[in-house]
Design a protein around this nucleic acid. Sequence first.
DNA 1: TTTTGAGTTGTTCGA
DNA 2: GTCGAACAACTCAAA
Length: 475
Amino acid sequence: MPETTTAIVWFRQDLRIADNPALHSAAACGATVLPVFIHDDDEAGEWAPGSASCWWLRKSIASLNDSLQGNLRIFRGDASDIIVRFAREVGARAVFWNRCVEPWRVTRDRSIKQQLQQAGVEVHTFNGSYLYDPAEVAKPDGTPYRVFTPFYRRGCEALDPRTILPAPADLRLDTKSRPDGFDEKPVLPAFPWFGDADQGWQPGERGAHDALETFLDSGLDIYTVARDRPDLNGVSRLSPHLHFGEISPHQVRAAVVDRAGGKQSESVDKFISELAWREFSAHLLYHWPELTNDNLQKKFDRFPWRDNEDLQQAWQQGATGYPIVDAGMRQLWQTGWMHNRVRMIVASLLVKNLRIDWRHGSRWFWDTLVDADLANNTMGWQWSAGCGADAAPYFRIFNPILQGERFDPDGRYVRRYVPELADVPDAAIHKPWTLGASDAAAGGFRPGRDYPLPIVDLKTSRAEALAALRSLPAR
DNA sequence: TTTTGAGTTGTTCGA
DNA sequence: GTCGAACAACTCAAA
């Protein structure tokens, strides 16, 4: 391209400078780079980002704008309209972006690409968010995988991940083009429900790399065991950073492998397979875009879900009477995040014991998680409900008492988020309703008054769930 | 081509 | 206390 050409780089879920294929290629072709972000919520329909995501996004955008010396053009509105109009106004030669997997974006981006090309503008798109392109991994017969292990072993490990790209050294930014007539208002969270500072979150590329370093230093070695312990710092907490693309999975994997120094390590293998689960989710959503709302296994269309507002609300508010569940739901509400082990426990209670439709659960998580990711969230809920790909055996129903005792043995996690149980002795921390009158009187704690009694009986609800699952037709 | 065995995260029951 | 069996049906890959 000649000296004077301008290339638009459209940032979406790749809010980073380093290892960003779209940005890298735009810079490499010698064009002046015009970075753009569009708040395009209106096009997302029912999957517009929730409050927690908006909170994170605003901070991440600010961080990216800093990295671009304040040159990020931030618009609000219909992306199809804005990108095409903007490209024409600034006389852009090309538009670069990294692809996403949300169905509404896939459809929309395809149409934008067409419009741009018709207007004589080049379009260059890249896989920036996944180790492997979700569209490219396939079984030998060309069809997509539905089981994780072969997807991972055959589909992914057979491919080479691309090389990591440095931040463009010679990035020439367009500092002038600021056309009128565009809405530049940022999107504010509909409901700003948690404090900024106290959760230790640091949205943005810098924060992502800090989180990775912290994990490499103090979490990786013990990952195999500690990853299941919500009372310990055993997980990376990289999920929101990965979702918004503040760091790429390539960077994360390379750093982890590098830290292991070539040594065989169970923890490293385990962690990388977790990254592969993220890949699997994207693969599934890409190939089955209806998955956000429809059961992958059609026989579940006839599952006898129950509608019960009161039970659903008790679950949302962390008032089920099962301490590990309530701690998780309150952690979610207070911090915008929940430990993975606890996500499975709360999901199991909702879909199996309360027998409430998984879509109510995925919807709540969508609105409250800072790492809300359409692919991961959908896959996780379908997996928990047993209606998804490579589903859990139908009889795998978590017992929140056993899970609590196994993974939060001292009740430290429970006490942190359910403070009214602070003085309950360890032996009863996961089943406070068993406290007798004398035990309870000792701490002044009374089950049913200071903390809810269980809203559902585990034994009978489990039996009912098993019966309901058995009643489903074979296909 | 057909058959066989394994598949992220569990619980309960009875010996 | 521990231990093994049972709790489906389907997908995928290897034999």
